[in-house]
Design a protein around this nucleic acid. Structure first.
Lengths: 363, 363
DNA sequence: ATCATAAATGGTCTCGTGGCCATCATTGAA
DNA sequence: TTCAATGATGGCCACGAGACCATTTATGAT
């Protein structure tokens, strides 16, 4: 036991009396070498004679020494830490994304710090600050709605952080991104429903630049137009990506005098709300109504009928994002690429031709 | 623009040329005060004359200065960072736990670092090391199975970290803990099924000290005994808490010559596997079989029939855990309390009296 | 006017590690 | 024997903020 008397330093909190943790100096002292030599045992061991190396390693083992990452990163400016901002960690899409991205980054020696913005740029602003306080080297962000964090993201980039947006990308955002091909997915969804004979189709959420600027909502009317359809004004209602608002909106839409015959939920969470509302109204899928949703969550295959979904390549998206981070941090490659990944329509049993066929048909 | 020429220091990575981030010295220089005074503008502003304060604040705003948390924590030994080890972040129980605990800790100025152990102490060991490398002040851990991390947890405690276990607690573990009252929940579940007339009840997983040391499995036979029932040897099969193993086990159990009339899934994820297997065998709930599961996940209310569940007070558990951390870190209160929280049986429609009533009945 | 007191401000060291340069020892060749 | 080259090791400072003590300045009482 060396180390104890050398310095009479007391930590502020009484809990830490006697709790000094071994550092590289203690290791060096115990091994009878200089701190520099001790460090080399960790960083480039071949530079030491086998005997010295063994002695230092013995000391490390004896003291249970483990380097302090904070101190190590202090000099370089950034830490081997990456921030991940998700909208909501309880949303499986984000949980899976976090897991996949985290694994890749960890394998490369980075630690992920996750935070939530609840789809709000205002909350995001605070989270970004916290992450910057930790001097993360990069931030993967699913941007929240609103302008409150945009300027700050730019400032972070100027400070040397690598910023990447995923899942959502504000208009004209200059940051590299990893996105689902929302337009193509929406086209495929609409085309599929149209082919079944639907003309009165509603998406759970209409585009709104402030409240609901989602690409899926924006491209829905375009996809409809491509099939020669249009979205009735009564169906155009702004909502959020939460279960409750989707539930309320579904009730509203199905209460119309000319209700939609097919519903497209934009996320798996929305689909839960829609599903609840549909059941409450005593409607049966797919006879009374067709339902299609983004996100291939486990439960969608479990309910009756199993729900037709558009599956997102979550792992591939997370991997693309993580690899972009590694390229930027380790190879200095400041790409500004916008990666777009394809989704996949998985047809199950929640969609069928509409009951009472109206005027339009064919395509 | 001060700061540029003062030091000709170049960061190792070329990306950081010219990217020096403002520190408190830069602020002080710009405001024309000493670094100490500049710091005080942040920590105890009342100690400054209003004019000086304003000048420093102006400088802070102009430079966009934000303190480096790493440097700040270096001196004190620990950082304002807390590690959270979950088994799997895609399991909603853990995602919710992480969210709730994270919010409380963040509100108190801490940052949460999440990592996964996949129910394995071996993997956990590595994650703990990573967390310790960041010098987290505390670790909330859902322990993985196996001995590989126990000694290390003790060492971390000796180094001053506050360790708390939640959701699972190895036998004789000395660390404070926050647990569901698994025994009571299991008793209630078994009593409920028994009251419906079931005698052939199986839990999805039998206690095994190495592979499956879950309290729920351990207390299941006890709960059965209290109702005068016993668990047939054929039902006693060791499994894991994953969907696939639960799926396989359900198939096995239902393939027996005397299959159980009621199944208890130990987690929501297990329930998904069980549900799939039940459906594949063409069995109908609750007529052919009763199913009851831990975890009140959203989908359990959505499927047909809605599944009877035991709800865990996830938020309360997370809050209890987070508060324990804050008490330990801020008030120096090293409690070793084992908190146990009650679950709640939510009866829905997946349980009914068994079809062909065998010998036993009543209770 | 003088001194005591408190308020405001500054100086200096610490934390643990990484990077760079200096030093010392050893070896082999001229 | 001397010199150069190489290998092994050590010294020193930077990083950014916190803690503590020292110093300067203002205030008020005697």
């Amino acid at each position: 036991m060396a180390s104890q008397q050398q310095k009479p330093f007391l930590f502020p909190a009484s809990r830490f009396y006697n709790r000094r943790v071994a550092n590289i100096q203690d290791v060096a002292r115990l091994a009878g070498v200089s701190p520099t030599t001790a460090k080399r045992a960790l960083r480039d061991p071949d530079k030491l004679t086998p005997e010295t190396l063994a002695r230092v390693q013995q000391a490390i083992a004896q003291l249970g020494y483990e380097p302090d990452q904070r101190a190590g990163s202090l000099r370089g400016g950034q830490s081997r830490t990456v921030g991940l901002v998700v909208a909501s960690i309880v949303e499986p899409f984000f949980a899976q994304f976090a897991r996949s991205a985290g694994r890749i980054l960890q394998a490369a020696g980075y630690t992920l710090i996750i935070s939530e913005n609840e789809y709000s740029a205002r909350l995001e602003r605070g989270e970004l600050s916290r992450l910057y306080g930790q001097r993360v080297a990069a931030i993967l962000v699913r941007p929240g709605y609103g302008p409150e964090s945009r300027e700050y993201l730019h400032r972070l980039r100027e400070r040397g952080l690598f910023i990447l947006e995923y899942d959502y990308r504000p208009p004209d955002s200059p940051f590299p991104s990893v996105m689902l091909d929302n337009a193509a997915c929406m086209r495929e969804a609409v085309a599929y429903l149209h082919a079944l004979g639907h003309t009165r189709i509603a998406a759970l959420g209409t585009y709104d630049p402030e409240i609901h600027p989602e690409e899926r909502s924006r491209t829905f009317p375009e996809a409809m137009r491509e099939c020669g359809l249009s979205v009735p004004a009564a169906y155009q209602r702004v909502t959020l990506l939460t279960e409750d608002t989707a539930y309320a909106l579904t009730h509203e839409l199905l209460g119309l005098s000319e209700p939609p015959t097919a519903l497209i939920a934009l996320t798996g969470t929305q689909a839960i709300g829609a599903f609840r509302a549909i059941r409450e109204r005593g409607l049966h899928l797919p006879g009374d109504l067709s339902l299609l949703t983004f996100d291939n969550y486990p439960w969608t295959a479990l309910v009756d009928p199993p729900v037709t979904v558009i599956e997102q390549p979550v792992e591939a998206m997370a991997e693309a994002a993580a690899r972009a981070v590694l390229r930027a941090l380790e190879e200095d490659e400041t790409s500004t690429a916008h990666q777009v990944l394809a989704g996949r329509l998985i047809v199950r049993d929640s969609c069928a031709p509409p009951r009472r066929v109206g005027a339009a048909a064919g395509c």
